[in-house]
């Protein structure tokens, strides 16, 4: 059981950092940005390049990758999304797919399709009968710190409050003298940087491959949907809830409940939880929205 909780924390840490960015951009611009997943992949590759080819220390490499990816996100906005202000959310979402495919093939062209590993050798640790590594501890700590920092940025700084104001009511924000363009750029920077950190952690824990976006995509969007789409910390909680559900499903030995044989749900059903959660939430959304209005 302890092992399941530990696995939940690790996985939700990786997913959560990426998911908050999707929710943040949804809250401000009102569309699901699929290119966000690609920012995570780009960030991970940048961190890898800086670390393995340019010999930056790993921590510095990840921080630099976050800054660079933030810059890439701002550039993508300037070149693409800022020109689509009058396009419907569905239209923007489709364009974000296009951007994602472009980034994906660019990564594939530069780094090739084979996977790469950072080659870290973290120490194995043990609490009771639960095992984890020093890297897992780092992942969870970084995830918690990243959430605290984001909370501080959004709730305790003038610019962060302005960003929330823009998300809450864009016209009112503009007529209060809040510069919408600059705030949206700031938002893209935060999104890109957080995606890069999440992607780097993901790659450090497993491996780098151009197709890692497909593995990240489903749990991230399921988390964001669970959290209510535009709720930044809801997305983080969504990641936690989703991760717990997934790890419970595949981690519990159901066979031992009924017989002497060990049987648990095969791990490939992990994704079914994500899909199932999304379906249930989307089905319940109209009902939940009515309830909220009634209150």
């Amino acid at each position: 059981m302890l092992q399941i909780l530990i696995n939940t924390l690790i996985y939700s840490g990786e997913i959560g950092i990426i998911a908050v960015g999707v929710a943040l951009s949804y809250s401000v611009l009102r569309f699901a940005n699929f290119a966000h997943i690609q920012f995570a992949v780009v960030g991970a590759y940048l961190a890898f390049t800086l670390n393995q080819f340019l010999h930056c220390p790993l921590v510095l490499a990840v921080i630099l990758a976050a800054v660079l990816t933030g810059g890439i996100a701002v550039t993508v906005d300037a070149l693409v999304f800022s020109r689509l202000r009058d396009v419907t959310p569905e239209g923007k979402m489709i364009v974000s797919w296009g951007v994602a495919l472009l980034l994906r093939s660019t990564m594939g062209a530069i780094f090739g399709s084979s996977s790469r590993v950072f080659g870290l050798e973290p120490a194995s640790l043990q609490i009771g009968d639960a095992f984890f590594t020093s890297l897992d501890v780092v992942v969870v700590v970084v995830a918690i710190l990243a959430m605290i920092l984001l909370h501080f940025l959004l709730y305790s700084t003038r610019l962060g409050t302005a960003l929330r104001a823009l998300a809450s009511n864009a016209d009112l924000a503009a007529t209060r003298g809040i510069p919408a363009r600059r705030m949206v750029s700031l938002m893209w920077f935060i999104c890109g940087a957080y995606a890069a950190i999440g992607g780097s952690l993901f790659a450090l824990e497993s491996q780098l491959a151009p197709n890692m976006d497909l593995i990240i995509l489903l749990p991230v969007f399921a988390s964001v949907t669970l959290g209510g789409l535009s709720n930044v910390f809801g997305a983080a909680l969504g990641a936690l809830g989703l991760s717990l559900a997934q790890n419970l499903l595949i981690g519990v030995d159901f066979g031992s409940w009924f017989s002497a044989n060990s049987w648990s749900v095969p791990t490939q059903f992990r994704d079914f939880i994500a899909v199932g959660a999304m379906v249930i939430i989307l089905l319940l959304r109209p009902y939940l929205a009515r309830r909220r209005r009634a209150v």
Partner: peptide, 17 residues
């Protein structure tokens, strides 16, 4: 195990037990 997953710890936990 399903191929192409980033992590197989969950799959291997049974072995540990």
């Amino acid at each position: 195990y399903s191929e192409g997953q980033p992590d197989y710890r969950a799959d291997l936990q049974a072995v540990q037990r």
